[in-house]
Simulated scan of single mutants.
Amino acid sequence: MGDQKLLEDLISLNKTDFAQLVIAEKEAKKLKNCTFVDFRDKAKFNKHHVKDANHVDYSDMFSKPMMEELNKSNSLVIIHDVPEVAGVIAATLKLMAYPDIYILQ
């Protein structure tokens, strides 16, 4: 039964227009309860990042501390240099019932 639900969720998610999820930093900062989550490697994050962004190494995406840190009532803005990776992260978080996901432009 769980496999059927996952399949239905994936089909529904594929209907999402990911272009609608892309947001500029200025607009994202206007969102209520917004959390920036930077999934780039630590060196790139240390070199430059959005002020107050949380760093999560992509390989630690599903770690318990990361999942506890990300509040489902907040809007999450995903940061990654590779648009396809940012899309996969956004899709994964949407499947995990995070309601408001955006991708930083």
Rank of each mutant, 00 (worst) to 15 (best):
D9W: 00
K30W: 06
L21D: 09
L13T: 13
F62C: 03
F36Y: 12
R40Y: 06
D52T: 05
F18C: 00
V77F: 00
A91C: 03
F39M: 06
A19C: 03
H49F: 02
N71P: 04
D81K: 07
S75K: 14
N14Q: 12
A90H: 10
Q4C: 01
F62S: 08
V88I: 15
E69F: 12
V22M: 08
V22I: 10
K15M: 08
A97G: 08
D100I: 05
F18Y: 10
M66Q: 14
S75P: 02
D17V: 12
D3K: 15
K32P: 01
D57H: 11
E25M: 01
L104N: 00
E84M: 05
V37A: 01
C34T: 14
A97F: 02
H48G: 00
D52P: 03
V50N: 06
D57V: 12
D17A: 10
K47F: 09
Q4L: 00
D17L: 08
P99N: 03
V22P: 01
D3G: 09
A43T: 15
A90T: 11
D81M: 04
K5I: 13
M1C: 04
L10T: 10
F39Q: 06
K32D: 13
A90W: 04
N54C: 08
L70R: 07
F36Q: 03
Y102T: 13
D81N: 12
D38F: 07
Y102S: 09
F39S: 05
N71V: 06
N14H: 10
K5D: 15
I101S: 05
H48S: 07
T92K: 10
D81L: 01
H48Q: 14
T16D: 11
H49T: 10
A90K: 09
M66T: 15
L31K: 15
Q4S: 10
S75L: 04
T92E: 12
P83F: 03
Q105P: 00
I89C: 00
K64V: 04
Y58S: 02
V37C: 05
A24K: 03
V82R: 09
D100P: 08
E27M: 12
Y58F: 07
L31Y: 03
N74I: 01
